[in-house]
Design a protein around this nucleic acid. Structure first.
Length: 204
DNA sequence: CTTCAGATGCTCT
DNA sequence: GAGCATCTGAAGA
């Protein structure tokens, strides 16, 4: 299994955020395998980024995970009922991360729709189908990720990223080709001062 | 297609 | 006590 290694995550956070686009996020759970193709990410640049939870090396119980080695999953609760999945990046001790904002289901879609709506794929509305994984809370719900998985390693056996769909014994579709990367400001960070406008959101 | 209100609980000041 | 890296269903255009 061609799992991305720590070296991949130990790069500039924006480089990682761009490189993750088109790669496959895999979740193994109770003997089942779920996978999605990553289509949207955001870079959170640590000590000098007012949008980052650990801005100025702020160290609290919640941000402790950001100080873990690159390749660690940082998962936190947001708005009382949703979760956001991040990958810790850069050298250990630099509290930087990439937020996984969106994807496309590749494997285990029916388990994902059950986790999201308690329905089979065929029973989704067209609106639900069209907007299935276009948000960080949706990604976590579909993959059954909560704070219980905060701090797990992406080098382990339950959650990881691979480069190529063939690593999952699946056949590439025309949708899987890498398309042009677009950039823009990050979402939902109105508190972040000048950092509001930094174009550190990436999507394909 | 868009807007809108409401849900819900943890985190840090 | 305030605010939050959000989502959903319902209603309107």
């Amino acid at each position: 299994m061609a799992k991305l290694t720590e070296k991949f995550y130990r790069q500039d956070t924006r480089t990682v955020a761009r490189a993750l686009l088109g790669k496959y996020l895999v979740r193994d759970l109770d003997g089942a395998r779920l996978a999605l193709r990553i289509t949207e990410t955001e870079a959170y640049m640590g000590r000098m980024d007012k949008a980052c939870h650990a801005y100025g090396y702020k160290r609290t119980k919640r941000t402790e995970t950001l100080f873990s080695p690159p390749g660690t999953a940082y998962i936190y609760l947001i708005y009382g009922m949703y979760h956001c999945l991040n990958f810790v990046t850069e050298a250990e001790g630099e509290p930087c991360a990439v937020l996984i904002r969106g994807g496309e289901a590749v494997l285990g879609e029916s388990l994902m729709t059950q986790a999201r709506f308690g329905k089979t794929p065929d029973d989704l509305s067209s609106y639900q189908r069209k907007n299935f994984l276009n948000g960080p809370g949706k990604v976590c719900r579909a993959l059954s990720l909560t704070r219980e998985q905060n701090g797990i390693s992406l080098l382990g056996d339950t959650l990881w990223v691979c480069d190529d769909i063939k690593d999952l014994d699946l056949v590439p579709s025309s949708e899987d080709v890498q398309r042009q990367i677009l950039t823009g400001p990050r979402i939902g960070i109105d508190y972040a001062g000048e950092a509001i406008h930094f174009p550190w959101r990436y999507w394909i």
